[in-house]
Amino acid sequence: MTTATYQVTGMTCEHCVRAVAGELKTLDGVSDVRVDLNPGGESAVTVSSAAPLTAGAVAAALDEAGDYRLVG
């Protein structure tokens, strides 16, 4: 079980939170996603998963969810 926090830009409202969380949860081994929404700025997304995720997979999931970018 590992937990990682990512900084994501482009999230503005609860819709975004649901889209991002929904998409991240489809990744293998992800059990929980928490989003600390900061509209218009960098939101902290905390992902709990069985094994560490690659940044590429997270970025791909964010891209899949909409116009969101992984910045750190």
């Binding site: 482009g10 503005t12 409202c13 819709h15 975004c16 889209a19 116009d67």
Partner: peptide, 12 residues
Amino acid sequence: MTCASCAARIEK
């Protein structure tokens, strides 16, 4: 749609 991100999501 509630924000510009919604539009981006639908577009995608």
